[in-house]
Amino acid sequence: MSIQPVIPYSTTIHIKDTCLCLHAQRAARALARRFDMALKPTGLTNQQFSLMMALNRPEPPSMGPVARLLAMDRTTLTAALKPLAARGWVAIEQDPKDKRGKLLRLTESGQDALSQAVPIWRQVHGDIEAGMTSDPLVLRRGLLEVSA
Rank of each mutant, 00 (worst) to 15 (best):
R87K: 15
R87T: 09
R87M: 12
G88P: 13
G88T: 12
W89C: 07
W89S: 12
V90C: 12
V90Q: 10
V90D: 13
V90A: 09
A91D: 15
A91G: 08
A91V: 03
A91Y: 07
I92M: 12
I92T: 14
E93A: 12
E93L: 14
Q94A: 10
Q94N: 10
Q94K: 14
Q94W: 07
Q94I: 13
Q94E: 13
D95R: 10
D95C: 09
D95F: 05
D95W: 04
P96S: 14
P96A: 10
P96L: 07
K97H: 12
K97T: 05
K97M: 11
K99R: 15
K99E: 15
K99I: 03
K99S: 11
K99F: 10
R100Q: 14
R100G: 02
R100H: 15
G101L: 08
G101A: 15
G101H: 11
G101W: 02
G101N: 10
K102H: 14
K102V: 00
L103F: 01
L103G: 03
L103C: 06
L103E: 08
L104T: 03
L104A: 05
L104Q: 01
R105S: 07
R105N: 07
R105W: 04
R105K: 13
L106T: 06
L106H: 03
L106D: 08
L106F: 03
T107E: 07
E108L: 05
E108H: 10
E108M: 12
E108P: 05
S109D: 14
S109E: 07
G110L: 02
G110R: 02
G110I: 00
Q111N: 07
Q111H: 08
D112L: 11
D112I: 03
D112Y: 04
D112A: 12
D112S: 11
A113G: 00
A113Y: 00
L114I: 01
L114C: 06
L114P: 01
L114K: 03
L114N: 07
S115T: 11
S115L: 05
S115P: 03
Q116D: 10
Q116S: 08
